[in-house]
Design a protein around this nucleic acid. Structure first.
Length: 417
DNA sequence: TCTGGGGTCCTAGGACCC
DNA sequence: TCTGGGGTCCTAGGACCC
């Protein structure tokens, strides 16, 4: 059996942990730049706050009823690790699917006195006691059914085990097809046009037809809906295939020098991520984007892919190419909102092949970069940085409602009187 | 004034091979 | 009238996820 454990309203639950006075109150968390609502407590949902709603367009009266937070990913990542570590105590077959979700596989549940359902309640109670984060658990024989059971569990008492054909059939017959894992906007409108409204109706179509209409992904989903597991548990984390830094500036930028500063900064972040993962990149794609919501301004989304002369994760190398890329795509007269840098074709540091025709300064650069990482981690971010990176940073993200890093920063640790 | 930031997987089509 | 038949690899773009 496969269980999906999902943290309820995860970011909102995190923010409430160290602010107990907010229990039972409507809380929302905003995306980067305080753009959209990305997490809501149950009370906020009850007030009608929609997922993805732009904060600045929200009704003032509604805003005033909410306690609002900017997203604090350092904090959420730490809380996530605590939840996952606790889950790993119940089974060693663990597949961490996202920051707030985890698949667990139970091979035999005969040993659990009282059965699987009781065991899931034990897991739930342990997680909330040890971390303070409430979770829901759905159990079935495939990941797709476990995801569905999990969503349904939130309506019951937090646990739903679909362990008989009757229970599965009942569940799929009333489950809206557009809520299935793997059905997005495009597929759901296609399905609705075909008159298929529930997961059960999709499951009752002939598999050949499903394959023809929705490709192999549809076929896989069909088998999963019949309880036949096709999406394997990923117990070891795959090597990452790409790294991306793409953030809005918090305001529009058209000045070339300022964009150079931003490009340098993002290249430094990418280089740090690569070194942390012990990877080098062979390609760098660079893109500028204007604000698509500003219909009154001219739009431009230029991009270029650079193949690097040799795989690298050194800061000076990546900055150099990020700036070359910027020069290639920059056009004056446009107000840009976003700069995007993606490293693809990643290979482990240990497998890097050098090009014999290249004058390789790698070792020196790598030593410098490693030293930067060490000093920055010891003395704080930005202690050592590239010269072009350094200025006022007045294009930084808006984060007007940021909470302290309660669990990861000594100076933010909670004081008890 | 203001509308997220990461990822993965799959397909179609072109270039190229013998 | 009629112009092969199999492959592989790469890329761009779409769909989807949280």
């Amino acid at each position: 059996m496969i269980a999906l454990v999902d943290c309820n309203n995860f970011y909102a639950s995190c923010e409430r942990l160290f602010r107990p006075e907010l229990r039972g109150k409507p809380v929302v968390v905003l995306s980067n730049n305080d753009g959209c609502v990305i997490a809501r407590s149950n009370e906020a949902k009850a007030l009608g706050v929609k997922m993805g709603a732009p904060w600045h367009l929200m009704d003032k009266d509604l805003q005033e009823q909410l306690t609002v937070f900017s997203s604090n990913y350092t904090f959420y990542a730490d809380m996530s690790a605590r939840v996952m570590n606790n889950l790993a105590r119940f089974t060693d077959r663990v597949d961490v699917y996202s920051i707030d979700e985890c698949f667990l596989q139970f091979s035999h549940h005969e040993g659990f006195t009282g059965g699987l359902e009781k065991y899931c309640h034990l897991i739930r109670n342990t997680i909330i006691r040890n971390t303070g984060i409430p979770v829901s658990i759905g159990v079935a024989t495939s990941k797709t059914l476990a995801k569905m059971a999990n969503k349904l569990a939130k309506k019951f008492n937090g646990v739903l085990v679909l362990d008989t054909d009757e229970k599965v059939t009942d569940a799929v017959n009333s489950y809206p097809v557009e809520d299935l894992w793997g059905i997005g906007r495009a597929s759901s409108s296609k399905l609705l046009k075909l008159g298929i409204k529930t997961a059960g109706e999709l499951r009752n179509q002939p598999v050949d037809w499903v394959r023809k209409t929705f490709t192999v992904q549809g076929e896989r989903m069909w088998y999963e809906l019949w309880g036949k597991s096709c999406i394997p548990l990923k117990e070891v984390l795959d090597r990452r295939k790409g790294v991306c830094t793409s953030k809005g500036f918090g305001r529009l930028v058209d000045d070339y020098e300022e964009l150079q500063e931003i490009a340098t900064n993002y290249a430094c972040r990418i280089a740090e991520k690569l070194r942390k993962d012990k990877c080098c990149t062979t390609n760098l794609s660079v893109r500028l984007l204007t604000n698509p919501f500003r219909k009154d301004l001219p739009q431009l989304f230029p991009s270029v892919v650079l193949s690097l002369p040799y795989p690298t994760n050194s800061t000076p190398d990546l900055v150099k190419h990020a700036l070359i890329g910027l020069k290639k795509i920059y056009r004056p007269g446009f107000k840009f909102l976003k700069y995007e840098l993606t490293a693809t074709g990643l290979i482990p540091e240990s497998e890097v092949q050098l090009n014999i025709f290249q004058d390789y300064k790698g070792t020196k650069h790598i030593k410098v970069s490693r030293l930067m990482d060490q000093l920055n981690s010891h003395y704080g971010k930005g202690t050592l940085r590239m010269a072009t990176e350094d200025k006022k940073h007045n294009w930084d993200m808006r984060r007007n409602f940021l909470s302290p890093n309660y669990t990861t920063d000594w100076k933010d640790i909670i004081k008890v009187r």
